[in-house]
Lab assay of single mutants.
Amino acid sequence: MSIQHFRVALIPFFAAFCLPVFAHPETLVKVKDAEDQLGARVGYIELDLNSGKILESFRPEERFPMMSTFKVLLCGAVLSRVDAGQEQLGRRIHYSQNDLVEYSPVTEKHLTDGMTVRELCSAAITMSDNTAANLLLTTIGGPKELTAFLHNMGDHVTRLDRWEPELNEAIPNDERDTTMPAAMATTLRKLLTGELLTLASRQQLIDWMEADKVAGPLLRSALPAGWFIADKSGAGERGSRGIIAALGPDGKPSRIVVIYTTGSQATMDERNRQIAEIGASLIKHW
């Protein structure tokens, strides 16, 4: 067993022997301040990774656009098919120029040779490549099948209805392509620590998230040296922004954090800054 596999296998073990965790309302004060600064709703939840206990939450059962955070769930569904012998990570998928959609920095470079399922998941999570996500959605049967996968996990809230990039439209009061912070946090925890996926697939999923290259201005910008984070960000229309993450000190994750916002007129930089400040408060009061 590799060191990384050992780390993920012992996530519940280490967490069980940690000192009790206590909620700190100071972080919620910052979440509410972010709402004021952005002029928009902000949803927040913080779960203990081992027990699933909610440590703090704000608007945990209000719907927010998922945006690209759905790509972690998508690759979880792909990995479940791999575990069941219905898919192979090494299978190569070929596609054409007509398949390319807006923001496809990886797939646009491989029109000639195609990409493997493993490479597509890596591109979808680490670079948020939209064509990679659409190609992977095709392998599982489309958005409705991802929703069905989530329902089978016990998540009857999260739903995907459309493809990239239309799913980022974020129309107010439109339930399409949305989740709730509580539902997303619980589902992410199941994917990373539950028995739904094999140990190898859980490790692969967290490795992809740990290698995320496009979430630097968010929670990662607030992390002290030595902290662990595996995350996936999302951005959408109407001032929408979000991030889902597993993080913790001492090089291992111990909490799940989900943050979503929508309806702001603020710039992307300002949305990023507010999420980073929430992260800084979380870490300060850990």
Results as ranks from 00 to 15, higher is better:
140 I>L: 10
113 D>V: 09
52 G>L: 05
256 I>P: 00
85 G>Q: 10
52 G>F: 05
18 C>G: 10
145 E>I: 10
246 A>Y: 12
219 L>V: 10
43 G>T: 01
281 S>V: 15
138 T>G: 13
182 A>K: 14
61 E>D: 14
196 L>I: 15
105 P>V: 07
122 S>H: 12
40 A>Y: 03
72 V>E: 01
280 A>L: 11
238 R>D: 07
158 T>M: 03
257 V>D: 00
279 G>W: 03
56 E>K: 12
211 A>T: 10
13 F>S: 08
209 M>K: 00
189 R>N: 11
201 S>K: 07
131 T>L: 06
77 A>M: 11
3 I>F: 10
21 V>Q: 05
60 P>K: 14
204 Q>T: 14
112 T>W: 15
270 E>A: 12
141 G>T: 05
277 E>D: 12
79 L>S: 03
61 E>P: 01
87 E>V: 09
180 M>T: 15
129 D>P: 00
257 V>L: 09
249 P>V: 06
211 A>S: 13
14 F>A: 10
158 T>E: 00
233 S>N: 01
167 L>N: 07
222 A>F: 08
285 H>K: 09
243 I>E: 03
74 L>T: 06
131 T>A: 10
87 E>G: 05
125 I>P: 00
139 T>V: 12
194 G>D: 13
139 T>Y: 07
1 M>V: 04
232 K>I: 00
251 G>L: 09
5 H>V: 08
190 K>I: 09
161 D>A: 06
138 T>L: 10
231 D>H: 04
253 P>H: 10
34 A>S: 13
121 C>I: 05
281 S>W: 07
185 A>V: 06
174 D>I: 03
225 A>Q: 15
2 S>G: 07
64 F>I: 02
221 S>L: 10
185 A>D: 00
63 R>F: 06
190 K>E: 15
113 D>R: 11
234 G>F: 01
238 R>E: 08
181 P>W: 00
127 M>N: 08
93 I>K: 04
143 P>T: 07
200 A>M: 11
200 A>E: 14
145 E>W: 09
77 A>E: 09
173 N>P: 07
157 V>A: 12
90 G>Q: 11
7 R>M: 05
121 C>R: 00
245 A>M: 04
172 P>E: 13
80 S>A: 11
95 Y>W: 10
269 D>A: 14
249 P>Y: 05
155 D>R: 00
5 H>N: 10
87 E>R: 02
99 D>H: 09
249 P>F: 05
95 Y>C: 03
117 V>S: 03
250 D>N: 15
159 R>Y: 06
272 N>W: 01
81 R>W: 06
138 T>N: 15
282 L>I: 12
256 I>L: 11
22 F>L: 13
219 L>A: 03
166 E>L: 14
240 S>N: 07
103 Y>E: 03
138 T>F: 10
223 L>I: 12
215 A>F: 03
129 D>L: 00
209 M>R: 00
152 N>Q: 15
38 L>S: 08
110 H>I: 05
240 S>D: 05
152 N>E: 15
30 K>R: 11
96 S>L: 13
184 M>R: 00
226 G>K: 10
230 A>R: 02
256 I>R: 00
42 V>I: 13
275 I>W: 02
98 N>M: 11
122 S>Q: 14
147 T>G: 10
240 S>Y: 03
241 R>N: 04
143 P>W: 02
150 L>H: 04
45 I>D: 02
286 W>N: 03
144 K>H: 09
189 R>S: 13
73 L>T: 09
207 D>I: 10
145 E>K: 14
251 G>C: 09
126 T>E: 12
11 I>C: 14
49 L>V: 13
62 E>D: 10
6 F>S: 08
276 A>Q: 12
195 E>H: 14
132 A>R: 00
147 T>W: 04
57 S>A: 15
268 M>L: 12
58 F>C: 08
224 P>L: 04
59 R>S: 05
218 L>D: 03
94 H>W: 13
157 V>R: 12
227 W>M: 03
216 G>D: 08
151 H>P: 04
81 R>H: 10
98 N>Q: 15
245 A>W: 01
40 A>M: 09
267 T>W: 05
195 E>K: 11
227 W>V: 02
260 Y>D: 00
87 E>C: 07
219 L>M: 09
174 D>A: 05
174 D>N: 06
11 I>P: 05
9 A>F: 12
170 A>H: 09
98 N>V: 12
172 P>H: 10
106 V>D: 07
246 A>T: 11
183 A>L: 07
229 I>L: 07
120 L>H: 03
12 P>F: 13
170 A>K: 06
162 R>S: 09
101 V>S: 10
24 H>W: 09
222 A>M: 12
74 L>K: 01
110 H>F: 11
27 T>P: 06
233 S>L: 02
225 A>C: 13
151 H>G: 13
56 E>R: 09
143 P>E: 05
238 R>M: 14
221 S>M: 11
106 V>F: 07
76 G>R: 00
285 H>S: 10
191 L>E: 03
129 D>A: 00
93 I>S: 03
165 P>V: 09
173 N>F: 13
286 W>K: 02
97 Q>R: 15
47 L>G: 03
143 P>C: 06
110 H>W: 08
106 V>N: 07
78 V>E: 03
167 L>F: 04
244 I>M: 08
80 S>V: 11
111 L>N: 06
165 P>E: 06
262 T>W: 08
278 I>F: 04
42 V>P: 00
130 N>K: 00
252 K>D: 09
6 F>Q: 09
151 H>T: 11
183 A>C: 08
123 A>E: 04
266 A>M: 13
101 V>G: 07
265 Q>C: 10
39 G>I: 09
11 I>W: 12
68 S>Q: 00
251 G>H: 15
55 L>T: 08
143 P>G: 06
140 I>P: 01
20 P>D: 15
2 S>M: 12
60 P>F: 10
87 E>D: 10
101 V>P: 02
14 F>D: 00
179 T>L: 01
140 I>S: 05
85 G>L: 08
19 L>G: 14
41 R>T: 09
273 R>Q: 10
11 I>D: 02
111 L>S: 08
243 I>N: 02
275 I>M: 11
141 G>A: 06
155 D>G: 01
166 E>N: 13
